[in-house]
């Protein structure tokens, strides 16, 4: 679903590494040399299984890593370097230019304040020239935008009076209140039923169409990515191992892990019990115990001994705007 995306790069992450100092055990790279970019108006899906580092990536972009994490590399947002930026500058960005939609809507909303008050607060933190009634009418507009019926009365409800899907909508309303340039949505629909997920994704779509915000969608669901993202980055054990437009990644899959992942999914449109699912042997190593060489090689059916188990693969060009971190991908001519 291509929105009004332009070629202007909004966010550029280069060689980002996150290093953890552990009190016990060995220090390790939770994220290693990760590069990403998002153009204005574009949706980038980041997909990976639990422990692949996808949520940590969003925490790094937001500047919200735990204290024992050491970050290196570069995160440029609207031309401004975020790594090493002053906390006050980051605070100014967060919530205004850069917004996050949390996964758990129940804990992300304060139970003792009305939904309207919390939306108003999200606005007034960055713009305190608005009167109380202006804030309220903005909150009503936002609730309407995210598809909550009767927003004039709903605005005075408390979070517990909302259903799960409505709370998630309210959170979206809060995060888009200041028309951010980039919305980071970390598993925004994981806790929801499919029919509600469809509603929420529809809301995100409409907001993107209206505001031309970019979206960084973090999920474990390749189906959501296929329907929603323009480009996709596949993460494995702290690395982006494949990145490109959704069509190229889904149809001209370059990395064996991505291929395995796609093959292991039961599909809604596949006939009953047509054939066994592909099973990737073993399980994803935690970044603390990443194997030598390519971190996927112990599970890879085509790994080459002496190469994949010793050398960390570099990024190869698998096609136009499509890269993969695999020794077995042949570089394509850039066009």
């Amino acid at each position: 679903m291509t929105h009004n995306s332009t070629n202007e790069t909004l966010l550029e992450v280069n060689d980002l590494s996150v290093f953890f100092h552990m009190r016990e055990g060995e220090d390790f790279f939770a994220i290693r040399n990760l590069s990403l970019s998002i153009a204005r108006g574009e949706s980038l899906g980041v997909v990976g299984e639990s422990g692949s580092g996808k949520s940590l990536t969003s925490a790094a972009i937001m500047g919200l890593l735990p204290a024992n994490a050491e970050v290196s590399g570069s995160i440029r947002f609207l031309g401004q370097e975020l790594i090493g930026a002053k906390e006050s500058d980051l605070r100014e960005l967060r919530g205004k230019r850069l917004a996050v939609i949390a996964q758990d809507a129940l804990t992300a909303l304060n139970p003792v304040h009305t939904v309207g008050k919390q939306i108003a607060e999200a606005i007034s933190v960055h713009d305190n020239n608005l009167s109380k009634s202006e804030l309220r009418s903005r909150a009503v507009d936002l609730l309407d935008l995210v598809g909550i019926s009767q927003p004039e009365t709903r605005v005075d409800n408390f979070p517990h009076e909302f259903s799960g899907g409505m709370r998630q909508r309210a959170l979206i309303a809060m995060s888009v209140a200041n028309e951010p340039d980039l919305i980071i949505a970390d598993e925004p629909t994981t806790a929801l039923d499919v029919t509600v997920q469809a509603q929420i994704l529809d809301v995100l779509n409409r907001i993107q169409d209206r505001t031309s915000s970019s979206l960084l969608l973090i999920t474990h669901d390749l189906g959501v990515i296929a329907g929603f993202a323009d480009r996709v980055a596949v993460m494995y054990s702290g690395d982006v191992i494949e990145e490109g437009g959704v069509d190229s990644v889904f149809y001209e899959t370059a990395h064996p892990y991505t291929r395995g992942l796609l093959g292991s999914l039961p599909r809604l449109d596949a006939r009953n019990r047509s054939e066994p699912l592909y099973r990737i042997p073993g399980f994803q190593p935690s970044p603390a115990q990443r194997p030598e060489g390519c971190s996927f090689h112990p599970r890879c059916s085509i790994a080459v001994a002496g190469k994949c188990d010793t050398e960390i693969p570099i990024v190869h060009r698998a096609g136009p705007e499509h890269v993969a971190r695999c020794h077995l991908v042949k570089d394509q001519e850039a066009n």
Binding site: Q197, Q199, G223, A226, G227, L268
Partner: peptide, 25 residues
Amino acid sequence: ALISAVPVPDPRIERSRQRILLEGD
């Protein structure tokens, strides 16, 4: 509606699918 809401890991199919969005909760 339930079936239409399930995403399929296939971008081309996804683009051509009609979702039935249920009203309310």
